[in-house]
Design a protein around this nucleic acid. Structure first.
Lengths: 245, 245
DNA sequence: GCGATCTAGAGTTCTAGAACACTGGAGGCT
DNA sequence: AGCCTCCAGTGTTCTAGAACTCTAGATCGC
C-alpha cells in the first residue's frame, strides 16, 4: 500500500482471489475462470488481471499453464533438513501417501557440478538414476542421483524400479553412507524438471545438491533434488553444547 | 524458448542485460539507465522492458527502487544452517567485515506465532530486540528477538547496543541455550523490514523463526530473522549412523 | 489401433501511450 | 542550522486492444 492509502487495482484483485482461495471457494487444483473472463468480471484489462495473477503465482497460491488455464495450487510440505525425513504439515492430517516413481536410469557425461562433487574429471561418465516422489499422487520432488561409472556399472544391474538406490548401494555393494554435504538454493525449474513435477517452466523451486560419502571417505553419490517452492519449508531441531551465535 | 525457437523480446533483453552484468560492465550497485531510456535503446515499449527487468529481479540480479532507479544487485552469502554461523561465499575472498547494528529495544504485545513459540498466552507482553547484520556495510539480515516479559525485564537493563543478546542471557541471567527449533520459509518482505534491509517492499526473502530453549526446557527467546532471498543459500554437513533415507 | 492434422480454448507477448506515486536534492524561510 | 515545499527524475499502474503460442481433444487417414 502506498503512503496515501491507494491500493493498486491489481493488488485488490489479487486480494479478492486470495480470499476466495483461503475461504475454500476455490479448492486446490480448481481452475480459475480464463484470464479474459476474469478481467471482464473485475472490470480491468488483461494486463492488469495478469499482474494480479503474477502476485498470486509468486505467493504459490496459483499456477498458470500456457494453453491450459490457471489453477489453484496444492498444499505445501515441510522438509526436515536435519532428520532427513519428510513429513507433511497440513497433509499429515489428511493421511498422505508417499510413493517413489522410478523414471529413468542411463549413463551420461557428468555436468560440471556433479563431476566436481564426485571428485571426477570434467565430463566423466556417470550413471544417472531419476526418481519422482509423490504425495497423494502429487509430485513433490524430482531426484537425480549421479554415481561414478565404476559404481554405476554395478548399480545398473539392479532392479531400480523395485529397489531403493541406497538399498542397492548398501546391500549389494557394501557402500554405507556415513557422511553427506548438502546445499539448498533457490532456482527456476527447467523445462524437463517442470514437466515431471507438474509445474511450469521457470517456476521457482528449491534445488538441493547433496554429495554422500562412504565410510572410506570416497564420494559415492551426488543427488540433485528439485522441490517446487510452493511445496517446501525447512524445519530443524537443534542441540547445543554452548552459547548460540 | 518456445518450440519454434522464438525467444520473447523481453527474454532477449533480459539476456542482454544479464550478460552485461555477468561481464562486469555493470558492477554491483551500479544504476542502469532509466526504464524509458532502456526501452528506447532496445526498441520496445516500457511494458516490454519492464517485463525484462522483472525477469532479472526474480533472478536477484537487479533491484528496483521506486523513484530512484534500477540497480545491479550485490553478491549473496551462504548461511550454514547447521553450525549456526555465517560465512561468505564469494565475499570471503574479499575480506568482508561483519557487524551487528542494534536498532531497537521495546516492550510490545507478542504476535500469534511469537506467543505460541514462547508458550505464552495470546498477546502476552514481550521484549523485542531488533538488530541488523551487515557485511561490508551491506545489510544481510534483520533479526528480531522476542523474550518473555519476565526475562525481558532483566535483559532491558543491559546495554544491548554493546553486548550481544546471548551474552546477556548467559552471563547476566544464567540462561544457557541448550536446544533450538528453527523453521525457514520463503516470504515477501514487509515495508519496514524491506527498508531496514535496503530492499523493496514485497521482495522475496527467507524468514527464519527459531525458538531457543534453556537447559530446563523452557523457551527463552524467539528469533525472527529476515534474510533477503538474494543473499542466502543453505549449506549443511551431515554425519550418519546408518543408511540414508 | 495408431499417427498425423486441425482447432477451440486458454495463456503469453507486445504495442503506444497516459497518468499516478516515490525519492531526494535544491531552494526558500525561520 | 533546521525545516518545509517544490520539482525533476524515475519507477509504477493502467488502458485497449491485436497477435502469437501452447495444449489437448477431436477427426481423419492408413
Amino acid at each position: 500500500m502506498s503512503v496515501n492509502g491507494r491500493v493498486p487495482r491489481y493488488q485488490q484483485i489479487a486480494d479478492a482471489l486470495r480470499e476466495r482461495i483461503r475461504a475454500g471457494e476455490l479448492a486446490p487444483g480448481a481452475r480459475l475462470d480464463n484470464q479474459r473472463q476474469l478481467a471482464r468480471s473485475f472490470g480491468v484489462t488483461l494486463m492488469t488481471l495478469r499482474q494480479a495473477l503474477e502476485v498470486l503465482e509468486r505467493e504459490r497460491l496459483i499456477v498458470r499453464r500456457h494453453g491450459l488455464g490457471t489453477f489453484v495450487a496444492g498444499p505445501s510440505i515441510d522438509y526436515d533438513i536435519l532428520h532427513l525425513q519428510r513429513f507433511a504439515g497440513d497433509l499429515q492430517a489428511q493421511g498422505e501417501r508417499v510413493e517413489t516413481r522410478f523414471l529413468a536410469c542411463r549413463f551420461t557425461l557428468a555436468d560440471r557440478r556433479a563431476a566436481a562433487a564426485l571428485g571426477l574429471g570434467p565430463r566423466a561418465r556417470v550413471l544417472v538414476v531419476e526418481r519422482l516422489r509423490l504425495v497423494d499422487g502429487l509430485p513433490v520432488s524430482l531426484q537425480r542421483s549421479f554415481l561414478p561409472a565404476k559404481i554405476g556399472d554395478e548399480v545398473v544391474r539392479a532392479d531400480l524400479a523395485a529397489t531403493p538406490l541406497h538399498h542397492v548401494l548398501e546391500f549389494k555393494l557394501g557402500l554405507v553412507i556415513q557422511r553427506a554435504r548438502e546445499t539448498v538454493s533457490a532456482v527456476r525449474l527447467g523445462r524437463r524438471e517442470a514437466r515431471e513435477l507438474g509445474c511450469r517452466q521457470g517456476a521457482p523451486a528449491f534445488e538441493s545438491e547433496r554429495v554422500s560419502f562412504s565410510g572410506g571417505g570416497a564420494p559415492v553419490v551426488f543427488d540433485r533434488v528439485f522441490i517446487p517452492g510452493d511445496r517446501f519449508r525447512i524445519t530443524r531441531e537443534l542441540q547445543y553444547e554452548g552459547a548460540i551465535a
